[in-house]
Amino acid sequence: MNLDFAQIVPYIPFILQGIKGTLLVTLISVVLGFIWGSILALIKISKFGPLNWLAVAYTSVFRGTPLILQLTLVYFATPQLTGYNISQLEAAVLTFTLNSGAYISETIRGGIMAVDKGQWEAAKALGVPYRRMMLDIILPQGVKNILPALVNETIALLKESALVSTIGLADIMQNANVVKGAIFRYFEPYLIAGFLYYVMVMILTWVARVVERRMRRSD
């Protein structure tokens, strides 16, 4: 076995710096993706024909093509098409938001459909307008139903965010790549990167459990 962790020690702070990139992409994309996914879900359950069709087509395309292709396209094709010099972070957040919005919209739609029909009727009978009913009565219950699925989506997004290294964004993965190039060793930098991802996922899982317990207090 040819392992030498002594050599990598000076580079550890550099790999740790990648946490910032990973977290930035993940957190912003999760929040925006959730909002975007909610909007898509609401469109899908509405009876508004053309928009409805568009949302379904949108989901189909984003689920039906590789994420890395979407990312590459957004980052490299945006300047070509619009002349706007999109930054790595912008491209990463945009792609992940659009992509996870497509996935989350299906989850949220399922959560909304699982809310007891009686809740809709009770809200209607009280004269609550549609928008308020969705925001205050239906969505909160729908989201509670799908909390575990949302946590899974967040974890998946955190791990998939490693793809942003392909456009050179300085996340954990990219910094590990850089260290590999500097010391010509593979195992050590990627082991550290893997460890960091794992710890972050564990923290996320723990946070999700706390949140879930709080939301279940009305049961």
């Binding site: 007891d116 009686g118 809740q119 009727e121 009770a122 209607k124 009978a125 009280l126 004269g127 009565i137 219950q141 009305s218 049961d219």
Partner: peptide, 15 residues
């Protein structure tokens, strides 16, 4: 609807 109250078999309180 705001002028007409309705009570359901299964209550439908907001949980």
């Amino acid at each position: 609807r705001q002028q007409i109250g309705m009570v359901f078999q299964h209550f439908h309180l907001f949980p």
